[in-house]
Amino acid sequence: MKFYVCIKQVPDVDAPIQIKDGNLIQDTDRMILNAYDASAVEEALVLTEEDDDSEVEVVLVGPDKAQETIRKALAMGADKATHIKTNGDENFDSGTYARILAKFFEDKEYDVISCGKQSQDTDAGLTGGMLAQHLDLPYATNAVGLELEDGNLIVKRQGDSGQEVIALPQPCLVTCSNDMNEPRIPSLKGIMQSKRKPMESVELEDLGLDESALQPKTEVTGYMEKPGREPGQKFEGEPDELAEKVAHLLDEEENVV
C-alpha cells in the first residue's frame, strides 16, 4: 500500500523566543520536525512494516533548509520523499499549504494520506481537513490510534466526550495526535541509509498553481508577549498549616471555593 505523510519543519517551541518590533525572532538552529507529524510518520511505518510491497513517502512544502527535516523522516524509516520548494519568506497560511498539497496529490495514487493534527508553532489545525476537502477524501482528525482492515483505515479519534471509532474506506486522509505513539529516534544505520534514499525536488512553479491559489486569505500582522501572570505566593513549611492557609485564601481572598 502507498502511504503519504505530509510533514512540516517548525521552530522548536521549547527554545527561547524573542519578539522584536512585533516580529518573531526565530533561532534557525532550532528547527525541528513538527511533533504531530513525527507521530504520523511513526504510525505509517508501524502500519506498513509487515507488508513488503508498501511504501511510505513523506512530502514537505518548505525552503531548502527544511531538507534536514525530510532527512530526519527518511532516517526514521520512510522510503522516499518529495520536497516542494518555497523561498521560505512567503506568508503562506494553512489554506495556501493545503492548495499546494492538493495540487501535488492531484495526479498521485495512494491509499492513505496522513499528517499531524496541527503544527506546533501555530496550532491552527486546519490544513488536514482542507486537503481532504480539496481531494474529496473521507477523513478523520485528531486520531489517537490507527489500524488497517481490508481496505479500511480504522481510526480512533478523540472527540468532545469520548473516543470515536471510525472506519474510513481507502483512499482516505487522517490527521494524527501525538498521543498515538512515541516516534522512534533514528538509528545510526537509519541516518546513513537516509542519505541514499530518493528525494525528489519540485519547484512550486512546476505544480502549475494559479497565482490566486498562492494568495493567503489570512495574515499575521504581529506578535507580542503574553501579559504575564503576577508572581504568586509560594509557601513552604508544615503541610497542615499550608493547606489550611491556602484553603482560607481561596475562600476569603479569591472567593473561588
Binding site: R229, K234, F235, E236, P239, A243, A247, V257
Partner: peptide, 28 residues
C-alpha cells in the same frame, strides 16, 4: 508550575491534600 501559580504549596501531595480537603470541607 510555581512560576505561574497564584498560590504554590511546596510539599508532598500525600501530606498536603488530606488537611487541604478537610479544611475545604469545613469551609463548604
Amino acid at each position: 508550575i510555581f512560576d505561574i501559580a497564584d498560590y504554590g504549596i511546596v510539599g508532598d501531595l500525600y501530606k498536603v491534600l488530606p488537611p487541604f480537603i478537610e479544611e475545604l470541607k469545613k469551609i463548604k
